[in-house]
Design a protein around this nucleic acid. Structure first.
Lengths: 182, 182
DNA sequence: CGGCGCATGTAACTTGTTACATGATTCC
DNA sequence: GGAATCATGTAACAAGTTACATGCGCCG
């Protein structure tokens, strides 16, 4: 029952505006970075298969803005398919956090540089939360539009969760430092 | 460079005690539920390939406790391999949260039952956090052992992150309710 | 003797990443 | 003219899920 989600990210983004594969990749990175990602190896073949199923279409050659780029637009069938998916309950997410696994299995191997791992983890999410904060400010500044408030809530998810990540890593770093000096 | 992590979960668990595939599956669910999962379709074939690589071994028939069960133990080579992995920095985790995707793409489709989705999300993690709290209390009660404090920190990760999830979903539910009555 | 939980397994498939190849365009 | 970035693509592989099949042992 696990439907290919890549399909819906593409349909969703194309439902706003026509885009090329490359632009889709960039948009996913820009907007969804903190809760979604796609690789080219997944993206381009999916675009092809969506065209075959008539859920999206390629702009006719004469409408293309550059020779290299291939812009796609969503068809009515595609819009339907997207809407259908929106009405299906989200599946339970599976998360895999290698750092916790390593922490667990290195309980008896104190030489493992857990503090180093935790610092990298923390730095990574500190950067991410800064990006989100910036994004939030930008959104708050520009004139109020329909969806801004909704999007702020999506950003807030990232902020809250990353804050938890960061607090946990700080505390855990302290714990390991204390432990090491004992 | 993405090494098969299932290998290391198995090696890690077997480094504590001999186990069967079925027991490994159960242990992963019990201990790692909130940050790891494995399916049988991944587990059993991996066990076979680990035996082939001499990282684990099957107990000789006469030592098996029951006819159905196949217990494995870790070899010295396996212990080495596990240790090696512990010294490699954890890879960046990829998270995919379908609920945020649906929220984003349903901005213009208010009929989508986001409140329902959010409630299910919240309930799910409320249950999970209760389990973790119980687990924590159990650990705190039994006499102090080597690794309890470390494990408490691992549990604390789940507690902090789930708390963030729950707070976010509560706030977002409120937001949607307000929005609907407008 | 029926059902549940224990226990192992696999085939078919889907999903996803990585590494590579290719070439145009833009900017310095 | 060289580097960066735009832009598309694929082949080989790795990872992972699902659905199914099979049979034992125990309890009521």
């Amino acid at each position: 029952m696990s439907t290919n989600k890549t399909v819906y990210v593409i349909l969703g983004l194309l439902s706003e505006q026509p885009l090329s594969g490359y632009e889709i990749k960039k948009l996913i990175k820009l907007r969804f970075q903190f809760f979604w990602s796609e690789s080219y190896g997944q993206l381009y073949p999916t675009l092809k298969s969506l065209v075959k199923d008539n859920l999206i279409q390629v702009f006719p050659l004469e409408k293309q803005s550059s020779r290299n780029e291939i812009k796609y637009y969503i068809t009515d069938l595609g819009k339907e398919k997207l809407k259908e998916w929106l009405f299906v309950s989200p599946e339970k997410e599976t998360i895999r956090l290698e750092i916790l696994l390593k922490m667990y299995f290195s309980l008896n191997t104190p030489e493992v540089p857990m503090i180093e791992y935790l610092s990298a983890f923390k730095d990574n999410y500190s950067d991410a939360i800064n990006t989100l904060n910036l994004f939030q400010k930008e959104l708050e500044q520009i004139a109020f539009e329909d969806n801004h408030e909704d999007i702020l809530h999506i950003i807030d998810f990232g902020q809250k969760v990353y804050k938890a990540y960061i607090e946990w890593s700080e505390e855990t770093i302290k714990y390991f430092k204390r432990k090491n000096t004992k």
